[in-house]
Write a protein that binds this DNA or RNA. Sequence first.
DNA 1: GTTAGCAGCGTTTTT
DNA 2: CGCTGCTAAC
Length: 790
Amino acid sequence: MSSTSDAEAFEAAVPLSQRALAARGAPYLADLNPAQREAVEALDGPVRMLAGAGTGKTKALTARIAHLLVTGRARPNEILAVTFTNKAAREMKDRVGRLIGQAAEGMPWMGTFHSIGVKLLRRHAELVGLKSNFTILDTDDQVRLLRQLILAENIDEKRWPPRMLAGLIDNWKNRAWTPDKVPSAEASAFNFRGTEIYAAYQERLRTLNAVDFGDLLLHCLTIFRGHGDVLEQYQRWFRFILVDEYQDTNVAQYLWLRLLAQAHRNICCVGDDDQSIYGWRGAEVGNILRFEKDFPGARVIRLEQNYRSTGHILAAASGLIAANAGRLGKTLWTAGAAGEKVRLIGHWDGEEEARWIGEEVEAIQRGTRHMEPVSLNGQAILVRASHQMRAFEDRFLSIGLPYRVIGGPRFYERQEIRDAMAYLRLAVSPDDDLAFERVVNVPKRGLGEKAQAGLARIARENGSTLLDAARAAVATGRLTGKGAGQLRQFCEAVDRWHRETLVPGYDHIRLAEAILEESGYTGMWQEDKTPEAPGRLENLKELIEALEGFDNLQGFLEHVSLIMDNDSEDAEEKVTIMTLHAAKGLEFPVVFLPGWEDGLFPSQRSMDESGLSGLEEERRLAYVGITRAERLCTISFAGNRRVYGQWQSALPSRFIDELPAADVEVLTPPGLYGGGFGAAGAGFAAPGASTIEDRASRADVYNSPGWQRMQRNAGSRPLSQPREARHVVIDLDAVPAFAEGDRVFHRKFGYGTVEAIEGDKLEVSFDKAGVKHVVAGFVVAAEAADDIPF
DNA sequence: GTTAGCAGCGTTTTT
DNA sequence: CGCTGCTAAC
């Protein structure tokens, strides 16, 4: 901006007309609607964008970035663009790159709050008493550490579980409370010891040169507040700030943003109060209102035209969310067709619900009377709680329907990955006590609790690291027996690996492989015959592959804990199963929303803990769910569900009553032809009914007012498509791989014996999982499972 | 020091 | 029901 020509100065003052910019290579402006264009062109000063679901928010945001770059208002490294998930950040990078016709790699400050926090913290770690190679603890490490502290305080961990304190500390950090800032109102927390242990925990983290997730932001705040020069540097540096999913920011994140933006006030926040679903994690919708106060004169831009969903879907979602009080208010509209109504169906129990959805997915994949075929990738099942996923997995496995689960245990949270990473950490920094502790006896080296406690004591006496203590113990003969020899070998190995990491340009992939091999870690899993072992070896292989993207182990370790999300992009066609939370920001042509029962959704716990505001957050979650659907949305509930292995009956969700009847079509569940729901459960004789003891409840299920109203409006059409007779294909060519009595291995159920063969389906008696019907293609011969290569 | 077997517990959602 | 953590035996 220093050498500004007249023409450029003019550009800066007056937004160029659409045509003028298009002529100069800004085609991204051409297909924006007026509101989006306003959002793109209002570059200066605070902007608050209120963007409803499917209104082209990301499009506007990316175009805005492109506009900043193309008009020369900012260089790529002067834009701070914050998202909540890595996925969102990646998508934004891709799209900006496409808009400006080159890779957006040059935008180093586009990422999640946490990844940007790490980057800042590594530069200034010494200002909060850390070294720049600090390690990032995940929840598991955090809990372990707290457990040690709690035990040291002689507190009964049964009554005061470490997990609880971890949650508490997390909350405090979300509110930007360092130990000394925790208000006295919280003094009674955790048996009146909460703040005290919090302080001890922070101290311990510092000595370990480690941080937890919350610290990534909190330490940044401490630095910004305590070192004006550093803050000013970044205020100048980040000339334009953009924030995605603003409604999900917590107080710490808000303060972080405010500090960075308050000088130039070029901050653009995009959010939708109706999609605020992280209140339990400390998100404050109130931050939207607070923005107005802290940035007076902020321009408010509303995106209300929805491009994603059909009319009925949009109307159903809007009708539902209207039940929430105190919304900022938005009227979404669409120029598109009304499309299919939202479908509603009740089932006898959760298993039947899963069965029905599986068949619907296959039917829709083939194409129905009412809809063109939709591929599996275009279909998703969105659940409230992850334990609902199991029913679908079981069902889909047995009918051979390919699926992918998003948001299970994260890749880097898996035991084998954490172990492997601990080894790598130890190689890079032998003073990493946490890593040492984790793997010193994995695989077993005869170093149990006692030996480890001894090492810890030596370390404390000498003020040394655990590794040094181990060396000392071996040298002085303080440790004897079988463990001593193995420990000596372990220490030598660590030294050897560490020396290799010091060689410039070392082959880090080969070294990593060698570490896992020499430590006996891969060997341990190769010998393990449990069903999970092959999968774990597979994951280790993936970990090694991931190393290729980095120059050395150090680089890898610095980034991995935040980068490794497990939405691996595989090419195969699969239905997606995930939680509603994980689905935010995504869209699918076809969406299934199972489990709409009171207590499950809305979740009882949410209502107990947070009352009305909890219920409203649940309702927003429902709103998010429905608005993920482009063309077909199917809501379902089950009258009975197994929970903790006990059958429990449930009532349809109150949200069902709140759906506008005109936009909903009630389907007749299978097995109920001719009977219908008319007379309170009459004719309700689903297969399996006899196994359920509590039958009294079923009349109630269909007695809720909403359900009855719905029923009066029910269409005559029974199902989206009449069920095809599923004839068994007797294809001799498909069978010969297995015979009765064969031993087979299944990725999920483990080893088993083939009991019967019917077409391409096998009945297998699994050693651990019991008798299951599976498609032949899903199992391999047991011998083949033994040598799945690493 | 390690392992097997049992008791007791719990499931909301996540960077 | 399935997992974790504890106890009792190897």
